[in-house]
Design a protein around this nucleic acid. Structure first.
Length: 543
DNA sequence: ATAGGGTTAG
């Protein structure tokens, strides 16, 4: 299938391949390079060349080709090649499942594994690490436990790859106790296993325990590596604990290890997440001064800090860098760019990036829909939502519905909003969260349906928060309903007696369509507790 | 065949 259309290019390229003498090593290296650069066309051409020369069926090349297509996210091609290799060959299962797991197709990896078992193939120690990884990333703890049983039954518990992957699976599923038990049961504890447990501690929010573990293991002769320290740095940085980040870096230097791109990216990411934009920019600059090149992960971490008009210049510079280096195509980078332009109000730039995107995930879609919704392009937002549902490229998630409902409420599309709220639950089995209720209350409230909004609040299966009451209060003020406004105000005061002022601030922000982006700022203010309270002021200035 | 950093919402 892949071959036919490329006849002309094949002949020219064949000459090139033959000039290398066509050793298998060259083919392998080329395929790996193509995979790394996502050079799908070149890889397809080489594939055709291998077919013509009768090499494509050789298991060695077939495996490489499967990995290549998986890397280029061409799952159907990978699967087609897999189907051409004789069934009894265990290697083909290992390669396909491994390729899926390595490139983020966790659901597929697990379903192929079930298929493998249905075909009567027994799992071995080479396939288990990939399956465990897929389980962990997918959060499928039940299957993971079954695999643990398989490991014990087949005495794979002395294979360090398998055991490390098992610890990682429990860690990723948030089962630290289980991860700990497996780790402490190991006769020869190895570095990868320890690192997997360290990451489990972080997942669970006990970074300090992780540090203690590392120190203990050091006493017993374990030598931590950059991965160990980077894991700890990421944990402390996310917790906004600058002091501990510095301490870990010092420890790292005592062990003769240098910070790499991942260390820097972890620090930058933590700073941005904790709203220290200036410090993040400074750190980014220092990283460049040290001579390290930012990766797509670094870029997608720093871009959210550029999502205000004041810092857009830097964002544009970074955008330029991504174009030059070719990482603009990366989904994370692309989504972050779309979000950045959209947040700054440059909807047409965001739209252009979105339409030129070949690979989109739910974040890409959601960023664009939010961009439209938050800037009053409500029909565009709804149209894009419909397109997403129609094309079934990605399933809408809870954020997609938040974005679409936001658009409905700004456009006063009450009926459509109600149908979305129903569709979300009935068709997609998404439980409405606080923000969905807040949108619905806002939608009904703006349309003057205050009683319906109030009924919805009272029917909520979860405790309404200040956004829900804030939206309701805004609607009551707008429609001059003193009685209901008073109820809302009392509820707000009850929810946040310490920072009653912030509730009012937030509710008015909520009511103001164009100021969504400021919510983050307000949250930061609240977090720093610098907000003076002014209880009982002009909430009910309805008149 | 296993371990580290990333994008949306609140």
């Amino acid at each position: 299938m892949v071959i036919g259309a490329k006849a002309t290019r094949i002949s020219t390229n064949s000459i090139v391949y033959h000039s290398f003498n066509g050793t298998s090593d060259v083919y392998t290296k080329l395929l790996e390079a193509y995979a790394q650069n996502g050079a799908l066309q070149s890889g397809k051409t080489l594939h055709a060349h291998l077919v013509i020369n009768g090499l494509a069926q050789k298991t060695h090349f077939a495996s490489k080709l499967i990995a290549f297509y998986a890397e280029c996210k061409q799952l159907s091609h990978a699967r087609k090649l897999f189907d051409k290799i004789p069934q009894s060959n265990i290697r083909r299962w290992i390669v396909l499942i491994g390729a899926y797991a390595r490139h983020g197709f966790y659901e597929e990896a697990m379903s192929v594994f079930s298929e493998m078992q249905r075909e009567g193939m027994k799992p071995n120690k080479f396939v288990l690490p990939s399956v465990l990884k897929a389980c962990g990333r997918f959060g499928d703890f039940r299957t993971g436990e079954i695999l643990h049983g398989v490991i014990l039954k087949n005495e794979f518990e002395f294979d360090s790859y398998v055991v490390s992957a098992l610890i990682d699976m429990y860690s990723k599923c948030g089962k630290v106790e289980k991860a700990k038990r497996v780790f402490y049961g190991m006769v020869d504890k190895d570095l990868v296993a320890m690192n997997a447990l360290v990451s489990g501690y972080l997942q669970y929010g006990i970074v300090n325990d992780a540090l203690v573990l590392v120190e203990q293991m050091k006493v017993q002769g374990m030598k931590p590596n950059v991965v160990t320290y980077n894991t700890l740095i990421a944990g402390f940085s996310q917790e906004d604990d600058q002091v501990m980040v510095c301490k870990v870096i010092e420890l790292m230097h005592d062990d003769g290890l240098e910070q790499d791109v991942v260390s820097w990216t972890s620090i930058i990411s933590g700073l941005v997440q904790n709203f220290h934009n200036k410090e993040a920019f400074g750190m980014f600059k220092r990283m460049l001064d040290v001579g390290l090149c930012p990766t797509s992960a670094t870029i997608s971490s720093i871009l959210p800090a550029c999502a205000t008009v004041a810092d857009l210049m830097l964002g544009k510079e970074i955008h330029g860098y991504t174009v030059v280096t070719g990482i603009e195509k990366d989904v994370y980078v692309k989504s972050a760019l779309i979000d950045m332009y959209a947040k700054c109000g440059f909807i047409s730039e965001a739209k252009e990036l979105f339409s030129k995107t070949s690979e989109r995930n739910s974040v890409t879609w959601n960023s664009m829909i939010f961009g439209y919704a938050n800037h009053g392009y409500c029909s565009e937002a709804i149209e894009l939502f419909n397109q997403m549902v129609r094309e079934e490229e990605r399933k809408p998630d809870h954020l997609t519905f938040t974005a679409a409902l936001t658009a409905c409420s700004h456009a006063r599309m009450v009926q459509f909003g109600e149908s979305l709220f129903k569709m979300m639950q009935d068709k997609y089995a998404i439980k409405p969260r606080l923000e969905h209720f807040a949108c619905m209350v806002d939608l009904l409230g703006r349309a003057g349906k205050l009683d319906e909004a109030y009924n919805l609040i009272q029917s909520m299966p979860i405790e309404p928060d200040l956004f829900v009451w804030g939206a309701f209060l805004g609607a009551c003020r707008q429609h001059g309903n003193m009685d209901l406004a008073e109820i809302a105000a009392k509820q707000l005061a009850k929810l946040e007696p310490e920072s009653a002022g912030s509730s009012v601030l937030l509710s008015s922000l909520y009511a103001d369509a164009s100021k969504w982006a400021n919510v983050a700022k307000v949250k930061r203010v609240i977090k720093k507790k610098k907000l003076t309270k002014f209880p009982g002021c002009s909430w009910v200035d309805v008149a």
